[in-house]
Each structure stands twice: as C-alpha cells, then as structure tokens.
Design a binder for these strands. Structure first.
Lengths: 336, 336
DNA sequence: GTGAAAGCGCTAACAA
DNA sequence: TTGTTAGCGCTTTCAC
C-alpha cells in the first residue's frame, strides 16, 4: 500500500488539495467543520505530508547543518544539544558533519550545504575561501572563531584565561606555569594561550617552558601527563586549554605519584559537568557551550530566507574556583 | 541572481534537460563531446543540482537517521563516526537525534523518520510500538538491542563480561566483587550485569552488594566513587558497565586515598581510546563500536529501496588485560 | 472560506 | 546517444 498523498485526502474528504494543505499547516482560515472533516480522513488514512514534496515547494530543507572538527568530546555534544534544542522548536533537524573524519572535507561541506538551510560552523573547520564561496548561497554562523562578513558567536577567551591565571599568580603565589594544549588550528585554544601569555607578561613572569602541543581531548591530556612525568619536568601549575585535557591530567598524575594541587595545580577551561565531579574538583572557566549552540542555531535559522546583518555576539564566561588550583573547594569547605 | 536550474544549463548548452541530468549523474551513455560542452556550461554558471528537486524525483532523501539516547560520550561519537564513514561513501548524510533531550521523543522520531531513508536506532531509545509503526515506512536497524522482525547489530555482552569476571576471580583470586552501572533502560548494561551475575554464580560467589544504580557516563562514575568512599564500603573489585564509569572511578578514587589496583581493582567495558591512557591503564573488553556503526549503517542503507531479510549480526569482542585488574600492564612490564 | 492551476527542480520511461 | 514528456507531493497566488 502506497502512502496517501494530498490528492487522496482531498478526494476522500471532498475538498481541494489546497484545503488539505491549509489544514496540515494549521492555517486559521479554514472553517472548523471543513477542518474536522479533513482531519478525520487524515487520521483514518494515516496521512503524513511528505517532507520531500513540502521541501521542494517551499524551497526549504528544514535542516540545519553543523560542522564540527570531530564528533567526540562533551564540548561538541553540548554544542549539538544546544542546536538541537532550537531545531526542536522550529520543527527542523540537525545534520552533523565531522571534518576530521574525511580526507577532503571541502566537498563534504559543500554537499552538506546543499542539503541544509543554514550552517553553523566551528571556527577552524572550514577554509576562508570555502566560507566565502558558500555564504552567498545560505546563511553561515561561525562559532568560536571569526570570519569576515559572517555572524559569529563567541566568548572572550583571552580575558577569561587572564582572570584564571591571575588567580593562580595572585592568590596562590605561583610563578612557575606552563600551558598545555597549544593548537594553532583551534581559534579557541589560540585565544586561551594568548590570555595565558598576556597574564604572565603583565606580572613580569615567563613561561616555565614551551606550551605543550597536543590535541584537545582527554586522551591527549593523559599522554601529556605521562610525558611530563617521564621527563621529570612538572611545573607548579599546568594551565590546560580545556577541561578535557585537565581531566586527562587528573586521571593520570595522582597514579604517577604527583599530588594535585599540593605538588602541581591543574586548571582547565569550559566547566564541563565532569569538572565538578573529579577529585580534586577542577578549577576552571565556565564556558556557555550549550547557549552558544542555541544562539548560533537561532541566528542561522533566523537568517534563512531573508538576509540578515552579520553580527558578533559575545557570550559571557565566569571563573569557577574549585579545588585543583589549591583553594578549598566549596564541598570540602562545608564538609570538614 | 537566482541559482541556475537544469533548464538553464540545457538551454545554454543546446541540449535537453535529460542530457544535463545524465551528465550530473555521470551516466556513461553520454557522448564525450556533449559531456564536455555541458560541463563547460555547468562550471561557467556554477550550477549545482538541487538536492530538493532530486530528492522529490527519486523519492530519496539521501539521509540516514541515527537515534541515540543522548549526544554525549565517546561511545556515541564512535557510533556516529562509523555511520558517517558509510554515508561518506554513499554520498548521503547523517541526521542525529538524541531522545533524552526531548520530552516527547516519539514525535521527534516520527519527524526524523519522515526526513530519512533509513533509521539506525540504539536499543532502548524507541518504544516497540513506535518501531512497529515506523518499520513498514522505512528500514530500521537496531543497535545494541533486539526487536522483532528488524535487523540488529550487536555483541555478546553476557559472554564477554563472563570472561572478564572470570579473569578477576581466577587470576587474581578476587571473591568480593560489585557491579557499577545497573541501568534497566540500556540493553547493553543489562546484558553486562547478567554476565556478571552468571560468572559469580558459576563460581559459587555472591555479589558483595547490590549493583550500583547509576547513569552510564564519567560523571556518574565519579559520583559513585565518592559515594562508595563516603560509605566506606569499597569491595575488592568494581566491575563497571562501561569504560566511562571506570574512568570516572580512576579519576576519583586515588585522590580519595584508594590505590588501584592494590586496594581495589577496577574494570570497564568498551575499550575507549582513553582506556589505554589513564593511569593505571584500564583492563576492559574491546567493543567494536565504530564497526557496529558501519555495519548498522550499511545494512540500513542497503535495505533502503528494496526490502531485505531481517538478520541478527553479532560482532566479536575481545578481552583486553591491562593494569587496573592487578596485572602488570604491557607498558610497565617493558619499562621496568 | 474554498478551489483551480501553475509551478518548485529534478529524474526516468519511452521514443526517436 | 539524445530529446520529449510526464510526473514526484506539496504550496501558493488568484479567482470566486
């Protein structure tokens, strides 16, 4: 049995296809009696309007594209969730693409673009040229990065890390700090490193050693911890580009005989759910990833159809002091 | 300037729309000369066939739907990556849906179904009834679970955990074991708990205490660790429903004064990349999640269009002995 | 408030 | 090898 179409419904209900269409769209200008009659037939025949037909007629996919570097990590899960929560409201869906997976991500992004109404792109995943090529075709919002002429949603990582490092230097009198997670391909990581440098500089300090070049996930954090241990060159504080890295450290260093924060302070960035639950709890910067996803998706979808002014939206961050910097965390404080 | 259509290309190239269509599809039966002429016009006018038109004409979305409980965790990232690697080859894309996000996931799944050619569904995310309602409309493959009349891709968690627990009991003479991560909503977790029970039973042992009910992510692992510590009731071995939980334990217990594996052995399940990098390295069972994603996506997409016989595909697991059970891991062994 | 008719951009018989 | 001609299932003016 084939799926029924508008025409089937129209015939059975004794109305025109236009009226059926109006009913499925909840168009108010349909007489209640007519509506009821049509609805009855719709439920009887189990009719559901074809997205395919609707899409072609309206010239809309009802789909938001999300381009991420990779598919792993809580950071990206949050971003996706934020975007998804918006598409839930608008009745659309999210198409994800992890660029690290494919050899030539360019074509993959182009194909994604031809299946979606708007794109949310994480900074550093798509080349400037491609962005320029695509942006006349559909609205693009850049997250955690900037691009000429495009709307972007971001936080001020430089200032946030400055505050964080300031805390380490001023409150804990630490002068021997090292940055973990230098990654030129990530605008976020780059900004955080810049904040780190500026903060040290403004206190007349120098980095204890080169920043550790690394990926940005837990595994790399664990590896970096092992390497640091083997080389016997742990500084007094490790400033990680994100919480995942920091958690990798916390999951590894104590097993290797290093106490956190007594021997070495570890701080992260992002404030993942996990940060409050590892031991010691992680001092970090709250990064509103979910809200970034929401905001980006809203702007992208809002711009689909009409053309919108590009804007730069900066969302606020917040310093979260816990235990891993050397402070007595709230929990410890109240428990003893 | 509007996007050019087949008709524009046909007119400019002096051919029919059918020929243009053939060229864009790489249909071999087009004379090279004609092809070149058409291609020239295509590149000149920057023509890209509309997915919208193509989809309606072929009655195909070119999209695979993936229904997951949630969007976080490396487990799901792997699954998605596997599915994505397949859609990359077929030129389609993946539409993800995290059911835990939405109040009424039923409607969301229905909507997803009406935008995709096939569905890959993680066991436990969609009700039996809905599965039955949807399966006549499009092929559905169930992952980590079973459903009447549907193809499913799985592993034998019961047997795998039995081997793992066997190791703890036989090689390490541990008799005091507790299961962490009981979750009735996850068929995987349920199977693992069953394997745990069977193994104990076959050795005449009883569980040291009720299984710990918990979510299945790192955060819950960390919380459970804290709880266990506070209650002062750590058994000799903690058998976790997955690696995430185990990593949460490893990230927390040492900070609380418990040595792994000397005081307490911790084992997981899945063999996430992280498992080999935490300290101590994690003894676990290799779970081919990526391959599950690949296999499920292949079956689902292959069944799209024609109707296929439902089948149950069981992929193999493999016991991975590392340090957290009490064995000297490979690394330690070669280093000292 | 409702209907008729013209597409949206493409593919796929079928003919030539 | 190429062209003609119907649709695919829906929305949307524009009349009535």
């Amino acid at each position: 049995m084939k799926n029924p179409t508008v025409r089937d419904i129209a015939r059975h209900a004794g109305v025109s296809v236009a009226t059926v269409s109006r009913v499925t769209k909840n168009d108010p200008k349909v007489a209640p009696a007519t509506r009821d009659r049509v609805m009855a037939v719709i439920t009887e025949l189990q009719y559901r309007p074809s997205e395919l037909g609707r899409a072609l007629a309206t010239q809309r996919h009802g789909v938001l594209g999300l381009v991420l570097p990779g598919l792993s990590g809580p950071y990206f899960a949050e971003l996706m969730s934020g975007a998804e929560s918006v598409t839930l409201r608008t009745g659309s869906a999210v198409l994800v693409l992890g660029t690290h997976l494919r050899a030539d991500s360019g074509e993959a992004v182009r194909r994604l673009a031809s299946r979606t109404d708007a794109l949310v792109v994480v900074g550093g995943t798509v080349s400037e040229e491609l962005l320029e090529e695509l942006s006349p075709r559909l609205p693009i919002v850049v997250v955690a990065g900037l691009a000429e002429g495009l709307t972007s949603v971001r936080t001020d990582g430089v200032t946030a890390v400055r505050e964080l490092v300031e805390h380490l230097i001023v409150e804990h009198s630490i002068t021997d700090l090292r940055f973990v997670g230098f990654d030129a391909s990530s605008p976020d990581a780059t900004a955080r490193y810049q904040g780190f440098q500026e903060s040290l500089e403004s206190h007349g300090l120098v980095e204890s050693a080169e920043p550790i070049v690394s990926g940005l996930d837990t595994v790399m954090g664990a590896r970096a911890a092992r390497r640091l241990h083997n080389e016997g060159t742990l500084p007094r504080a490790l400033v990680c580009a994100n919480d995942e890295l920091a958690v990798g450290m916390i999951a590894t260093l104590p097993g290797l005989g290093h106490r956190i924060p007594e021997n070495v302070a570890v701080v992260g960035f992002d404030d993942l759910a996990l940060a409050a639950d590892v031991s010691p709890t992680l001092t970090t910067v709250h990064h509103p990833v979910f809200e970034i996803g929401v905001t980006a998706a809203e702007h992208a979808l809002a711009a689909a159809g009409r053309r919108n002014e590009p804007a730069v939206v900066t969302l606020p961050t917040r310093l979260v002091i816990r235990e891993s910097c050397g402070c007595a965390g709230e929990k410890e404080r109240s428990r003893f």
